[in-house]
Structures are given as C-alpha cells and as structure tokens.
Design a binder for these strands. Sequence first.
RNA 1: GGCGACGUAGCCAAGUGGUAAGGCAGAGCUCUGCAAAAGCUCCAUUCCCCAGUUCGAGUCUGGGCGUCGCCUCCA
Length: 475
Amino acid sequence: MLRLYNTRTRKVEEFKPHRGRDVRIYVCGLTPSAEPHLGHARSFLFFDVLRRYLRHLGYSVLYVQNVTDIDDRSIAASLQEGLPVFEVVARHFVSFKRSMQRLGVAEPDLEPRATEFIGPILTMIEKLVESGHAYVSEDGIYFRVASFSRYGELSGKHVDELMVGARIAENEHKNDPLDFALWKFAKPGEPSWDSEWGAGRPGWHIECSAMAHELLGEPLDIHGGGYDLVFPHHENEIAQTESIERPPMANYWVHGGMLLFEQKKMSKSLGNYEPLEKLLDRVDPQAVRLWFLQTGYRKPINFNEEALAGARAGIAKLRKAWRTLFNAAFGDAQTDGHALIERIHEVVWATQDYDDLVARVDEALSDDMNTAAALAALFDAAGKAEEYVRRGEARQAAVAFTYALSLLNLFAERKWLEEPKLEIDPRLIEELIERRNRARAEKDFATADKVRAELAAQRVLLHDTRDGTTWSVAE
RNA sequence: GGCGACGUAGCCAAGUGGUAAGGCAGAGCUCUGCAAAAGCUCCAUUCCCCAGUUCGAGUCUGGGCGUCGCCUCCA
C-alpha cells in the first residue's frame, strides 16, 4: 500500500487507483526552449522512482510525459538563432533525453508532442467555446476563468486576492486578467496551424488537457510535475478539462520540490544554472541520483557541490558492498559486469524473499516515497556486507541488496556495475606485484615503493593482506 | 498584499507526542616496512528563538526571527 501526498487535499492519502491494477500517470514534461538543467532532472528522476515503486507494488503503469514543442520562448529562441523552431526544440530535447538516460530515468511509455495533437486540442477548444467557457478575442481564444467556480481549488488561491495586474500583457485582449490563452493567432512569420477561427498555435495549458484526455482519459490516477506548475498551469488544466469532462481531471496531484541555486530557484528565466549535460560530464550521474534520493522529494534543495561530492563517496560505498556480496555469492562474476547484470535478473525474479532489508525499503517508500529512509536501510546493509559473507548469508543478502537497489535504480547503467576500465594489462600488474614482493622480502623498500607508485599512476592500488597482495582500480 | 513551504551536528539529511535514522567529512584502535582496504569504536543530553498544552514535544498550539516558492514563461 502506498501513501502519497496529494496537493489538492494537502494531505498524505492512501493511493487507490481508479481502474484496479491499471495506473495512469500524466506528468508535465519539458518545454525545450533552452538547455535543460538539474532542476528538471530532479523532477523527472522522482517520477521515475515513483513508477518503479508502483510496478514493484504490482500495478501496471501507463506513464505519459508530454513535450511542449511550441511556445513563445522557443519562437523567440528560433528568431534569435536564425533557426527553425523545430530545430531549436529538437536540439534541447535530444540533450534532455541523453541526460535522462545517463541518470537512469526510464523512458516514458508515451511522450506526446503538442504539435502532434493540434486536432484534439482544437476539438477541446471548440467544446469550450460552444459551452461558453471560452471566447474568441482579437489576438486569440481565451478561457473564461469566471465561468469555472472551482478555479483556485488546487492551489488554494482566492481569485479576488491574486495580484492580477501583472497578468495583463500589453498586446492581450482579455475580458479578465485571469483569463488565459487557449489559442494564439499567428503573427506574420510565426509557425501556425489552421483552425476555424484563424491560423495560430495552442496556448500552453490546453495541450496537457487535450493529450491527457486523448491518451489516458479522466480521471488520471496521478497528475504530476514540479511545484511551480501548481499555479497557474495545473489550475488551468483543471478548469479546461473539468468544464467539459466529468470531474475530477485527476485523483492525485503530485508535485516535486524545487532545486535552488544560491537560495534562488534554478530556472530557465533566471539562467542561474550550468547546462545539465555539462554538469553530468563533471559530476557522476549516479551521485546526482543518490543526492536527490537522499532528500525528500517535496523539499526544496540547494545545489551544493560538497553534498554532491559526498554522494559520490556514498555511491562508492554502496557499489563496494554490492560487489563484496555478489562476488561472495556468485564468485565467478569478478569483473564481468554484464554477467553480473544477467545474474541479477535471473536471481531477483526467481526469488521473492522479502527479508528485513527489502521490507524496510518497502516500508519507507510506501510512506510518501521516503527515499531517504530507504537509502538509510540500504547503507545499514552495506555496512554489514562483510558480516553477511562471514555468516554464509551472502547469497540471500546479495539478492535483497540488489533488489532494493533496483527499486531506486541506483545501478541503472551497466557500466556502473563494472570495474573501472584499465589501460594496463593485468598480467603486467601481476608481474610487477611479484617483483615488488621479491624486493619486500629483501627489505628493498625503495624498489617496492617505486613499483607501488608506478602502478598508482595507472590507477592500480595495491593492498597487502595476510593472504598476499591484491589490487583494485581507483575510481 | 494573498496563498504555501522550510529552518535538525562542520556539510547533506530522515524523523508529526515517548526520549535524535542514514550519508559525507573528522578522530581513535586492530592490521601494517610504507600505503590502502577491511573491521571495530567515537562524533547533536539536543532539534532557529520565546511562551504554552502534556506525565512526556524536534514532533501539538500561539507569537517572533530567518530563508524559499507561487500569484508572469518556468520541473
């Protein structure tokens, strides 16, 4: 059983899907008008873990995450760069996909683009106009907020208390400052699609209402996104959908906390960020994943290099423990990461043991996705890896540990499980170790230390143990 | 001005009434020619401040202080 915080009720509630085991999730995706940043990563990484956990609970999950591939900022960027909008959008979107892959975020089941759903969008607008919830104005078609009595319910806003002045842009022709655009008539040179009212493009909010309706239908079990989407985006989606479809649009509204940089929200408009791809070139994506998962998903987090470095060390600890357990349980898998992966699936799916570790992780995640508490359980187990081996429980511990890790997808990429690559031939390493040990036997420590230094330069670390000298690769 | 969130050790962070998880960093010990690894141990009498409720509060109530988010495109 999962308990989830629902923005609409402001309470943690028991999650009950509308259609039995069939769970439908719609998450507002990226508007690729600029390079994606770490804040985007946080949000989608959380929903990735949520999906994995729902599947663990036995639900069949259909996860839809849209792409807003047409909007004002993208058009502005295309004019500035002198490139077609689709080219600008595609570049940022592809970059986003690469980063998501590196972070171990699974692909959405469906990833619809706004421009592929112009038909359903226009159908919805037509219904809204016919029913009087929308009106045609000089520069576009607007939703009449006053026509929807529950407006503000999701975000807890009172319509008459909003600072509405700022909402009126000079060139907009709204009846009411709160009204928002469903369709924007094209200005010369702008990309546009034909409609019965005139060529134009969809407003931001309508695409989600239309695509969610078309692909999943109401009510969605979970509608998600970043906290900054609660108002006005999700509020507007509710107004549009529930004006013409049977409410509610969604049963659970789930929002992720913001990522801050120097105490300010990381955002495209402030530009206070390093492009995600560049960041992932210098910070281990797996450490990023751990760092996010060590904090509650609804809390704001400050970007923090020191914490990120700490997560890097933490991931090394988990990896080490995992290797210790797995090598003890399935010793032949010493360095072949691919073989290890195959074994994981073989073993995990063949075993449904729920020992203490898995139970603890399960309990933590069921409590509003408390990934930090789940990780604490994992670290406790990691600290006991040697003990499990000594007690002859390596196999069971390895299975439980692997299963728990897979719920968080911490070792998402195969290479994360492999030993770091070496340029030096292992046979040469063995030769050098022998030479060094002969020197040590003769108390020729100068030569011995020279060998150690030579190997260290190749990232090979030597460990003298009671049973002889072993080596490992520095990470 | 309205609505909302947060404030726990050097850093990050879990914890909504029962006596402070976990990670990083740090310290000591075992082992050791050196080094590392590994193991063991230690590291908040205290949770922004002040009142209050309670047998008992980081957890509830009231009041401060500070930070952030939304109200304009934003995960």
